[in-house]
Amino acid sequence: MDDRRIIELYFNRDEQAIKESKDKYGPYCFAVAKNILGSAEDAEECVSTALLKAWNSIPPNRPGSLKLYLAKLTRRASLDRADLNNALKRGGGELPLVLDELRETASDGRDPLSELEAKELASAVNAFLRTLPELDRNLFIRRCFFAEAVPDIAERYGISRGAADARLSRTRKKLRAYLEKEGLIDGSR
């Protein structure tokens, strides 16, 4: 079914919307959650949570892309479930690896961000991504948004794993420099 029609079902409060969403984007959302969590069971639950959140948020929201809207909800549900602060200890999925990779980029020993700072950070990350070459940007998004494994990303873009690793590393360094420049990271630490 066409996305527009599915969204209309949401607006008409027709529960068929959830079924149609699940049929169309369930596997996609499952992959997003599975990358982050590693566990198929947990991933299934996160997809269900995301669909429920979609039901509760459309309307008033009218997503431009239902697929990405569901992907973001799934990602958020997966991160909540992963318990980011303990993900490194718990292992499983790509998330601990991604967090570990970002340690040098983001750590500055300061307290967790306030809500306002978090918004500023999101805005800065968006702006930063737009400065990147397309390939570097896409690699970074696949790694840090979708938590995809590096070999899979390399295959997707037809480059070697080494090249993907090197580009990701370079992007992380650029991001660190960018965030320091924007005053979001304390560069002296």
């Binding site: 991604v98 500055d108 990350v125």
Partner: peptide, 8 residues
């Protein structure tokens, strides 16, 4: 900030 903030 820590990596979790960036992931979010």
């Amino acid at each position: 900030m820590d990596p979790a903030d960036l992931i979010k």
